[in-house]
Design a binder for these strands. Sequence first.
DNA 1: TGCTGGCACTCCGACGGTCTGAGTGCCAGT
DNA 2: ACTGGCACTCAGACCGTCGGAGTGCCAGCA
Lengths: 340, 340
Amino acid sequence: MSVSDDRRLHVLRAIVQDYVRTSEPVGSKALLERHQLGVSAATVRNDMAVLEEEGLITAPHTSAGRVPTDAGYRLFVDRLSAVKPLGRGERSAIERFLHGAVDLDDVVARTTRLLSSLTHQVAVMQYPSLSRSTVRHVELVPIGGPRLMVVLIVNTGRVEQRVIDTGRELAPDADLVADLRSRVNSVSVGLPLPSVPARLNALLEDVAPEDRHVATAVARALADAVAEQSEERVVLSGTANLARSGNDFPTSLSSVLDALEEHVVLLRLMGSMATVDGDQVAVSIGMENPYEPLRTTSVVATSYGDAGGLGVVGPTRMDYPQAMAAVRAVARYVAEILDG
Amino acid sequence: MSVSDDRRLHVLRAIVQDYVRTSEPVGSKALLERHQLGVSAATVRNDMAVLEEEGLITAPHTSAGRVPTDAGYRLFVDRLSAVKPLGRGERSAIERFLHGAVDLDDVVARTTRLLSSLTHQVAVMQYPSLSRSTVRHVELVPIGGPRLMVVLIVNTGRVEQRVIDTGRELAPDADLVADLRSRVNSVSVGLPLPSVPARLNALLEDVAPEDRHVATAVARALADAVAEQSEERVVLSGTANLARSGNDFPTSLSSVLDALEEHVVLLRLMGSMATVDGDQVAVSIGMENPYEPLRTTSVVATSYGDAGGLGVVGPTRMDYPQAMAAVRAVARYVAEILDG
DNA sequence: TGCTGGCACTCCGACGGTCTGAGTGCCAGT
DNA sequence: ACTGGCACTCAGACCGTCGGAGTGCCAGCA
């Protein structure tokens, strides 16, 4: 019946909330004290039996309270919780903290710190990825003799440079350089990075044969800059929070730490979770995780400004509403800052 | 008497070695089995009593074996151990692994990984510090309108850039820019970074008053690049090893992890330990550490190529000879690679 | 039909006592 | 100066007991 179905969900929600708070299995009596369910302990017990049947909660042993399963958390996240809005204080703290950043590295460092201290979990952030960024400007600078410095400026603030040897003496004000510069910029500015190499190759067709050698070298340098820096990076903060989170990681603590050092894995994880569109915050709970060593953890992540992913990793016993709110708020601010 | 003094030191050495291996307190009998001391258990017991008197070892409780104290490890490191040379295999592994690096970030990342997996401790490495580096080249690039990009290339391979607004329209081939570029380079190339701002200020005197504004902006940008990036960085690897190292960190694990995230502290630590000259590997044991949360750990560190510090952090129960050998060898290779 | 109070049952974890073995300190003998 | 022997200590393992928390089920009630 719908009414009692409803109550059962209330019970599940109460169990999740209490268990997250106390980290102790929660029994029928304890529930009544903290929540106004309007029914007796016996009824709650019946409900719990059903919830257990359905695989949403489980009892560590005969005479202990219940603990949510991964499926229980999943239901809680999907249907029983609203994202907690952050307090004014928290918002202004985020703003203040992030606005102090002086450069991209600093933004990333501050963001992860902030997120880990807001959530008391491990914070993970992907560097703004080149592959989703666009070209802001390309600069070519003769730096003596046949050498040319190629500088690629990306809209996220990253700068890549290469020095190449063109095999031909170049005057600092050579027409060739000025010409190439304006052509390269006109075909690439505003475009996403991955499309750049193709555009440049197309451009080569139009270059006078005697200049083709120089142009090719430039194109290669830019393609190289794009490719090499697509090796993306990821930054962590707050690993100590894992150790602090009590008995949530009986023995697996070190394997979780190991997993977190596998940046390649984290990148893939961020990548897969950041595909969610818009403001969505993705949550992956326990066994849902594709990567085995993280099967004892939950991941709450989102993408920021189309440039990369960011989120937290923690025990499945996590305050999801709070974590989701923090992740979302921080992602918004970061996107804003990177745009500016 | 000198002979028995000698034997007592043998006993101490044996205790340290066994304890490091097994992480169990070592008793008089166990010692006899593993080491040829040529005396009876009773004699060893007497020696141990003296060692305990001297504060070099201690018994966790009445009827357990002995465990080295910080002072015991100190004596062991100073007088009882030789730095274990690495095996051929290890050396070639180091070489192979580090030579695959593609850029500075990669060198640092690979180095810390390598060191943590060689020693099974947490590896720490300071980025090659700007303050001991020299200027390789300075480039000034007009990028449209009054804006000028200032690029600083450092001999360790780092590149810093700033975009400044000069307040004056600049043609791409402006004489002023070319002139400034050559002047700035001539007074700064090859000099250590910290001396650069002063040189530039001196240079300003010689600039025509009408150009002074632009020159000042450039000088400020460079000074800024030097200063801001003297905010040094540090990279860690292998924190999972801490969790693995058994009961060496009863409760303090999370505070140690916290401490390791305080990069400022690590930098100071590296700084203070890297003052040792030449090939020396510095060891700081337990309570010797200046920073409180690291009083339960030992640090083995050295400097590489005058550019920064590098080392490992682990429990005081550490294989010092092995750690020292690994740190020294890795530091040498890194210095070599950064030079090339 | 769904809720409730009551009751018997289970089982974890704390407590206290016992025992054993490893390890010690000391002493008398060589 | 070293050794064998001996009495002593004590942490940790083992064990049975007990209390309490929590459950499942049932009969009764709205």
